[in-house]
Amino acid sequence: MTLDEQAAGEAIGADSVSSERDAGAPRLVITGSLRRAVTDRYEAGESAASIARTLGISKTTVLSILKSGGVPLRHPRLTANECAEITELYQAGVSQVEIARKFDRDPGNIWHVLERAGLVGRKP
């Protein structure tokens, strides 16, 4: 166990995870200490994916905890209007990198939007 994993375990407490459920399937019990650990790490700049890996929970659970706690997400999903604007900009000749800067996103996010729209691989 790494020091980070040990600290994470101490932060969420032993009561955070229940391995039994009426239906027999394991289920995560979200305690106040787990909520605090997730929120503190996210507000300190750690990514939701990193928090999930460190605490041994899913990224969906991390995002759910943050949303229910009213914590603003740094990069919420792109809206349909934003995807349409990205597509229009790309078709107008704006590069993926420039579009990514405009939307404060990773260029890979822009590539995925363009891929779904069937526009990746613009010919010169």
Rank of each mutant, 00 (worst) to 15 (best):
Arg74Leu: 14
Val71Pro: 02
Leu89Ile: 04
Arg41Thr: 00
Arg36Leu: 03
Thr87Asn: 07
Arg74Lys: 15
Tyr42Cys: 03
Gly9Arg: 07
Gly93Ala: 06
Gly69Asp: 05
Thr60Lys: 13
Trp111Leu: 10
Arg21Ile: 00
Leu119Val: 04
Lys59Thr: 13
Arg21Lys: 07
Phe103Glu: 08
Gln96Gly: 14
Thr79Leu: 06
Val97Gln: 14
Glu98Gly: 10
Asn81Asp: 15
Ala84Pro: 04
Gly13Gln: 02
Gly56Ser: 06
Gly24Lys: 12
Gly108Thr: 09
Ser58Tyr: 04
Val38Pro: 00
Glu82Asp: 14
Thr31Arg: 12
Arg116Asp: 15
Arg53Asn: 06
Asp40Asn: 14
Gly70Pro: 03
Gln6Glu: 13
Ala92Val: 00
Tyr90Lys: 06
Trp111Ser: 14
Ser16Thr: 12
Ala8Leu: 02
Arg27Gln: 15
Thr54Val: 10
Ala25Lys: 11
Val71Thr: 08
Glu115Arg: 12
Leu55Phe: 03
Gly32His: 05
Asp106Trp: 09
Ala52Gln: 01
Ile86Asp: 00
Ala80Trp: 08
Asp15Met: 09
His112Ile: 02
Arg77Ser: 13
Gly32Leu: 03
Leu3Gly: 10
Glu20Asp: 14
Gln96Asp: 10
Arg105Ala: 06
Arg36Trp: 04
Glu46Pro: 01
Leu78Lys: 04
Glu98Ser: 15
Thr39Val: 15
His75Ile: 03
Val29Gln: 10
His112Leu: 11
Leu66Ser: 02
Glu46Asn: 04
Ile86Gln: 05
Ser68Pro: 02
Gln6Thr: 08
Ala14Arg: 08
Arg35Leu: 09
Leu34Asn: 01
Val29Ala: 09
Ile110Gln: 04
Glu82Gln: 15
Ala7Ser: 12
Asp4Lys: 11
Leu119Phe: 06
Thr79Gly: 10
Gly108Arg: 13
Ser47Val: 03
Ala92Asp: 14
Tyr90Asn: 08
Val71Ser: 01
Ala49Glu: 07
Gly45Glu: 04
Lys67Pro: 05
Glu85Met: 07
Pro107Trp: 05
Arg116Thr: 12
Asp106Ile: 00
Arg41Glu: 09
Pro26Glu: 09
Ile57Gly: 00
Arg35Met: 11
Pro76Ile: 01
Thr79Arg: 05
Glu115Ser: 11
Asp4Met: 07
Arg53Met: 04
Thr87Trp: 06
Arg105Leu: 08
Pro72Lys: 13
Ile57Ala: 01
Ala52Ser: 03
Ala84Met: 06
Leu73Asn: 09
Asp40Glu: 14
Gly56Asp: 00
Leu63Asp: 09
Gly45Ile: 04
Ala14Val: 08
Thr60Ser: 11
Tyr42Trp: 05
Arg122His: 13
Leu78Met: 13
Ile99Cys: 06
Asp4Asn: 12
Asp4Tyr: 07
Ser64His: 11
Val38Met: 01
Thr60Glu: 09
Ser33Asn: 12
Gly56Thr: 03
Arg41Gly: 00
Tyr90Leu: 07
Glu85Leu: 11
Pro26Cys: 05
Gln91Ala: 14
Arg122Gln: 14
Ser50Arg: 08
Thr2Ser: 15
Ile12Leu: 09
Ala49Gln: 08
Arg35Lys: 15
Glu82Ile: 08
Val38Ile: 04
Glu98Cys: 07
Thr79Trp: 05
Ser18Ile: 13
Arg36Glu: 11
